[in-house]
C-alpha cells in the first residue's frame, strides 16, 4: 500500500451560446438630457459581471468614459428581448447588440454636434473624455453634455439606438445530420497532478495548470477571477460534488450546502492560470464566452491523473475514494 503520484492532461472546446430556434439578444441605448447613456437590456446579471462589461462596451463604442454609462438589466417585461443568461452567451450576444445600439446612438450624437459646430458629422470624433471635436482641429469642440442638452431642448432629437444580434437557427443536413451548433468556441487545456492513496482511495490534487483561450478579456481582472473560481469548481466536479452519490438511489445525498461537498480552504491545489487571447471573428471586440468552459478541463485531467497514478479508469463522477477502491479491487481480481 502506498501513495501514488499521477499526472493527467485534457483539452476542451466550448461553444459560446446555443443554437435553439435561433439565438437573439436585443439592446436599447439612449442618452439622458445631461449626456449620460442608458443601456436597457433584459439580459440578467447573475453576478457574472454583465453590467460592468456592457457599460465598457457601450462606453467604448460611443466614445465616453465608462462611468457615464448606466446599465439597466432589471426588467424582462419592459426591456428588449434576450434569450437569457446561459451557455456562456451573455457577453457575446448582448455585447454585439449593445455595440449596434451604441453605434446608432453615436451617429445621432455626432449629427447634433455637427449642427452645433456647423461642420460635417463625418469630420467629428470623440476624445473619450466626454467631448466631441473636429478631427485635426481639437480646439473646435463641444461637450457631450451640451450636445445632449441641445438634442433634448433645442433640436428635438433623440440620441438613441437599437441593437440586435441574432445567431440564426441552423438546421441539420438531412443526409449527414451535420449542422453549425455555434459560431464561436473557447478552448482550454489543463494538466493536473494528483496523489492517490491506494489504501484509502483518497485523492489529493497537488497542482493544476490551466491555459484558457477566451478570445479577448474585456475586463482582465474579472476574467481572471472567473477562471480561478472556475478551476476550483472543476476540481470540485471531479472529486466532490453530487446530490445523489448512489443514483438512482437517493440515499446519502447532501441535505444542505454543508453536506454538499466542495473543496474547502484546506483542499486547495496549487493553481496556475494562463489566458490566451485570439479574438473571435464575430465576438464583441473579439470576446468569447469564458463563463462555463473554465470549469470543464479539470475533470478529465483529474480522471486521467488518477489513471496514471493507480491504473484504474473511473468513468462516473465524482471520483470518490469508494469508487477508486472498488475499481482497484476489481482490477486486483483481474
Amino acid at each position: 500500500m502506498a501513495i501514488r503520484r499521477g499526472r493527467g492532461v485534457a483539452a476542451i472546446n466550448y461553444p459560446t451560446g446555443m443554437n435553439l430556434g435561433g439565438d437573439p439578444t436585443q439592446a436599447l441605448v439612449h442618452s439622458t438630457p445631461t449626456g449620460n447613456f442608458m443601456v436597457t437590456l433584459s439580459s440578467v446579471d447573475l453576478g457574472q459581471g454583465m453590467k460592468q462589461i456592457m457599460a465598457q462596451i457601450c462606453a467604448e463604442t460611443i466614445g465616453v468614459p465608462t462611468d457615464r454609462v448606466v446599465v439597466d438589466t432589471a426588467d424582462t417585461d419592459t426591456g428588449p428581448h434576450c434569450m437569457g443568461t446561459f451557455a456562456s452567451r451573455g457577453t457575446h450576444r448582448a455585447g454585439n447588440a449593445v455595440i449596434q445600439a451604441a453605434k446608432e446612438a453615436r451617429q445621432v450624437m455626432l449629427e447634433v454636434a455637427a449642427e452645433e459646430l456647423e461642420v460635417n458629422a463625418s469630420d467629428l470624433e470623440t476624445d473619450g473624455q466626454g467631448n466631441i471635436q473636429v478631427k485635426g482641429a481639437p480646439q473646435k469642440s463641444i461637450s457631450i453634455f451640451d450636445v445632449a442638452l441641445s438634442a433634448h431642448f433645442k433640436r428635438g432629437r433623440s440620441i438613441s439606438g437599437r441593437g440586435m444580434f441574432l445567431i440564426p437557427r441552423s438546421y441539420p443536413e438531412k443526409e449527414t445530420g451535420a449542422m453549425k451548433p455555434s459560431t464561436c468556441y473557447a478552448h482550454a487545456c489543463t494538466v493536473a497532478e494528483v496523489e492517490v492513496d491506494d489504501e484509502t482511495g483518497e485523492v489529493t490534487v497537488l497542482t493544476v495548470k490551466n491555459v484558457f483561450e477566451i478570445g479577448r478579456a474585456l475586463n482582465p481582472k474579472m476574467v481572471e477571477q472567473q477562471l480561478v473560481g472556475g478551476s476550483w469548481m472543476g476540481i470540485s466536479h471531479a472529486l466532490y460534488e453530487t446530490t445523489e452519490p448512489y443514483y438512482p438511489n437517493r440515499d446519502h445525498g447532501g441535505t444542505d450546502f454543508n453536506q454538499y461537498l466542495m473543496p474547502g480552504l484546506g483542499d486547495l491545489a496549487e493553481t496556475e492560470t494562463i489566458v490566451l487571447e485570439r479574438p473571435s471573428a464575430d465576438g464583441p471586440f473579439g470576446a468569447k464566452g469564458p463563463g462555463e468552459m473554465c470549469a470543464n478541463p479539470q475533470i478529465p485531467a483529474v480522471a486521467n491523473a488518477v489513471f496514471d497514478a493507480v491504473g484504474v479508469r473511473i468513468d462516473t463522477l465524482p471520483i470518490t475514494p469508494e469508487r477508486i477502491l472498488r475499481a482497484l479491487k476489481a482490477q486486483a481480481a483481474g
Partner: peptide, 19 residues
C-alpha cells in the same frame, strides 16, 4: 490564513482571492 478561515465556507471564489 488558511487555518484561520477554515471555518468559513465560500461557494464562489475558489478561496484563493480571499487568501
Amino acid at each position: 490564513v488558511v487555518e484561520a478561515l477554515s471555518g468559513n465556507i465560500c461557494r464562489c471564489t475558489g478561496y484563493e482571492p480571499i487568501i
